[in-house]
Each structure stands twice: as C-alpha cells, then as structure tokens.
C-alpha cells in the first residue's frame, strides 16, 4: 500500500502542476459565466485583471499572493468600521501531526488573525484546544475545517505543500502549539 500511495502522490503532483500551468488568465466579466453579458453593469464594474494584475502574483486561486499583498502593503484593507471594535492578532503556530505519510501541517495564527477574528474559527470551526478537533483531509475537501475557507476564498486545496510544509524527518520539536507560551503573551 505504501507503494500505491507514493505512486498516487506523484500522479497527483503532476496533475496539480498541470492545472497550475493550464490555468487561464483572469476572465473578462462578459465571459466569466456568472455575469450577464447584457447587464448595464458591464463596463462599470471593475475587471478582475485591472486590479489583480497589480498585486504580487501567485499560481492558484485569484492568482494573487494575498499574504504578500498585505505584508508588503500593496493593499491596506480596513480592520474595522466601528472605532470600538477590538483588533486581535495572535502569533502562535500549531503543528498538526496526523498526516499519514504527508509532511506535517503548520497552521500559523499570525497570517490568519491579520485577516480574520478569533471568533471566525473559535469555536465555530475549531475548538480552541490542540488535538480537540477530528480534522482530516476528507472533511477538509468536503468544505469543513480548513476547507471552509481554503477552496472557497483563501488559496485552494491543490496547494498541498503550503499546509503540509514541515518535513517529518527533520522536525525535532513537539507537535501542538509553538512556542508553548501563555496566549496572553503572544496576543496583541
């Protein structure tokens, strides 16, 4: 079975390379199959290519690296509308080890909480405790857990190695929260 999975992994890898290269450019609104080409909005609405071509590029999704766009200040999206809203960012990674023969998963809180609030995930999608969620790849592909956003709005699930990013052989630490500090020290 090991051989079979390895074979399938490589096949899958080739397949995803293929789709990344074969991806067409940003579609014009008139032929994106969602907008009505006869709508008076065509010509007024912004074409995706006009805005997205100016941002750091990527190979999948919107073909924009939203992480770099934010970090390098190409875009400065608002964090709140009401002045009293509390803005929380947490710098804590979680290493998840139940990945079979795939590399371990590193879930970084920082880039997520720059976009999202804690209550988008806790406890609606994830219970706030390491190992407390029966996360697995089937559920993710069915749109649960990470798959709520990845595959819908955030980068798609074809990008295995962006989540499975930690080599099992060279990882010497403990799975779970990295570093193991009090959350109050890491939040700002």
């Amino acid at each position: 079975m090991m051989k079979a999975t390895s074979f399938l992994t490589s096949l899958l890898f080739l397949l995803s390379l293929n789709t990344a290269q074969g991806a067409p450019g940003w579609k014009a609104l008139t032929n994106d199959e969602v907008h009505d080409p006869t709508s008076p909005a065509i010509g007024i609405l912004q074409e995706p290519a006009t805005a997205l071509a100016l941002l750091p590029s990527d190979t999948s999704g919107n073909r924009v690296s939203w992480i770099r766009a934010l970090r390098e200040r190409y875009i400065q999206p608002r964090t709140n509308i009401y002045p009293e809203t509390e803005i929380k960012v947490l710098d804590m990674d979680i290493i998840m080890e139940l990945t079979g023969e795939m590399p371990l998963v590193r879930f970084p809180h920082k880039p997520h909480t720059e976009w999202l609030d804690c209550d988008n995930c806790h406890d609606k999608i994830f219970i706030e405790k390491v190992g407390a969620n029966p996360v697995n790849m089937f559920a993710i592909l069915a749109g649960e857990y990470c798959g709520r956003c990845h595959g819908a709005v955030a980068f798609p699930l074809t990008e295995c190695n962006r989540c499975h990013s930690v080599d099992r052989a060279t990882f010497t630490g403990q799975p779970g929260a990295q570093p193991e500090k009090k959350v109050s020290e890491l939040i700002n």
């Binding site: 608002r78 609030d117 988008n120």
Partner: peptide, 18 residues
C-alpha cells in the same frame, strides 16, 4: 465579488464586525 472587497476590507470586517 470577494476579490474586490478583500482589497478594501479584511475578512473580519464582514464576518466578525458586521
């Protein structure tokens, strides 16, 4: 369009504040 709005607003504005 998510792409258009996320250039201007973080997810938390719509999915948390609003």
């Amino acid at each position: 369009p998510h792409w258009f709005h996320r250039i201007r607003f973080r997810c938390k504005v719509c999915h948390h504040e609003l």
